[in-house]
Amino acid sequence: MSDLTHTFTVDATAQEVYEAIIDVRSWWGATNIVGPTDQVGADWFYLVPDLHYSKQRTAELVAGERVVWEFTDGYLDFIADKGEWIGTQGRFDIASHDGQTRVTFTHEGLGRSDECFDVCHDAWRHYITESLRQRIATGQGTMRTREEDHAAVRQHATSRP
């Protein structure tokens, strides 16, 4: 299985990137998140009503290097296996080189053969390579609206064979 991965490079320090990642509300959803996202062992929740619910546990925080979340519960309304994310991990690897920092996000355990892959790939692409990148550059990400999330699901549903 090939895990879902997105990578980008920014003009920022590894510590600035790390601080942006753990400030999840600023790039994944200010009103969609409940709980502390910056404490090892803490559980927190992400919710888009009638579409997506996930419970994450922050498993690892290494300043300037890595952030790992364990997806411990979840519900994806738009696929048959509603709990497809349960038991997977989100991992951010941070590496500096020549004054820039590379961010690699990997949703471990979510691969091309999984039903939500196309929708999730599109959503993570937005939230990682656009919203998080924008958050690092400007201090504020570009979250999608609930309507935009629903439209993305509909788009992928109609393009499936």
Rank of each mutant, 00 (worst) to 15 (best):
R144Q: 13
N32Y: 14
Y75F: 13
T101M: 08
D73P: 08
H156I: 06
Q134I: 11
T104M: 04
G74E: 03
G139F: 15
S113M: 13
V62G: 03
G74M: 06
E65R: 14
T9W: 04
Q100R: 03
H121L: 05
G41T: 02
Q56T: 13
Y75L: 04
V24R: 07
D118S: 10
F78A: 08
T106C: 01
Q56N: 10
T145L: 10
A20M: 12
T72K: 03
A157F: 12
T104I: 05
E60H: 05
A30M: 14
F117M: 05
A152Q: 11
F105Y: 12
V10K: 04
D98V: 09
A80Y: 15
A14N: 06
M143F: 15
Y46Q: 01
D3T: 05
E148N: 05
M143S: 15
V68M: 01
Q89D: 12
G41H: 10
H150Y: 14
V10D: 08
G111E: 07
E108K: 04
W28L: 08
G141W: 07
D43I: 11
H52V: 12
Q15W: 13
E16F: 09
T88P: 00
Y127F: 10
L110D: 10
R135H: 13
Q89W: 14
A137Q: 10
D73Y: 07
A137D: 14
T88N: 01
W27H: 04
H97T: 07
A14V: 12
S131H: 03
G64K: 09
H150V: 13
W27K: 07
C116K: 00
T9G: 03
T106S: 07
S26W: 11
S2M: 15
T9L: 03
I33W: 01
V68H: 04
H156M: 10
E147H: 00
R91W: 11
S96N: 02
F8N: 10
R133K: 08
Y75C: 10
R135W: 12
Y18P: 01
G109V: 14
T88F: 09
T158L: 11
S96R: 10
F8V: 09
E147A: 12
D43Y: 12
D11K: 06
D23V: 12
D11H: 10
G64D: 04
I136H: 00
T129A: 03
F71G: 02
H121Q: 10
D118E: 14
V40G: 04
A20V: 13
I22H: 00
T145M: 02
G74H: 02
A63R: 14
R135M: 04
I86P: 02
D122Q: 07
K82L: 07
D77Q: 13
A80V: 09
L132R: 02
D11G: 07
L76T: 15
F71K: 05
R133T: 13
T138F: 06
E84S: 03
T88E: 05
V17T: 06
G74Q: 08
D23H: 12
S113N: 12
R112E: 13
R66T: 12
V119H: 04
L4N: 06
D50V: 03
M143V: 15
W85F: 09
Y46L: 04
I21R: 00
W124L: 01
V40D: 03
G141E: 04
D73H: 00
